[in-house]
Structures are given as C-alpha cells and as structure tokens.
Amino acid sequence: MKKIYVKEEWCLGCHLCEFECAYANSGIGNIVLALKDKEIDPNVKVLSDGKITFAVSCRHCDEPLCISACISGALSKDETGAVMVDKSKCVGCGSCVMVCPYGAVRITKEGTANKCQLCMNNTFGEPLCVKKCPNGAIVFEEK
C-alpha cells in the first residue's frame, strides 16, 4: 500500500507539516480560520534532537500492535491497509498509545484516540503534509 515515508535527510524542521495537518483535519475550509489563535494537535509531529529533525506520523504497520491492543475494536485496517480510528467505539483506555513503538497515537482532548489516517477521511483526500512539504521530505508512495 501507499504509505507516508519521511526522508530525514531533507527535513528542514520548519514544522509546516504540523500546521497543514491541523488544517486538513480541522474540517474548516479557510486555513486562517482553522489555525488562528488555536492550539494545534496535529497527527504529524516534528521531533528533533537539536541537529536532526524528523516528522513522525503513523507508520500504518503491516501488523499493527495498536489494533491488537485495542480493547473496543475502535482501531482497524481499511481495505487499502491503512489503520483507521472509529471514535464512536473508542473508550479512551490508552492501550494503543502504550504499545505504539513510534509514539504516533495519542488521546485527544475529546478523550478518544487519534492518529494519522492519511487524510482519507477529510476533504483533501491526499496527505496534506506530503503535498505542502517544501523540500520533498515527506513522501506518499508504494515501497
């Protein structure tokens, strides 16, 4: 399946992907309205040790530990192989957060799990972090 991959060599640590992700998943059409005066909680996060920067988001593992750990059946793979969250089923137990080796799942303020769903469930239909990365450091491809 097509997945998001990050090329650390080209990541500039500009954090644009975080804001584009927050915008893409806000459900608001205007980017200023979506981001202005709001604390963002994006599905992709740029991590850094001061030298290297790297945008981390869900790896959509072939054998996802989060799905195995989910006690309520809220996490599942869709037909393409992407790991999706059904918020209506999630009980916010945090099991997925604990088992994810990449730290790519989190419990949001709403009390449910959230993570990158490849922009499949929003109006963009393609990962906006990939499209807007200024240096081709985030790619969406078959490997």
């Binding site: 640590g13 954090h15 200023v32």
Partner: peptide
C-alpha cells in the same frame, strides 16, 4: 496580523 497564525515557519526559515 489578521492572517498570521504564529506558526513560526518564517522564524525557522
């Protein structure tokens, strides 16, 4: 300032 969302991309770049 009506449009600036304080993302600080300009600062980092």
């Amino acid at each position: 300032y009506d449009k600036c969302v304080n993302c600080r991309v300009c600062e980092r770049q």
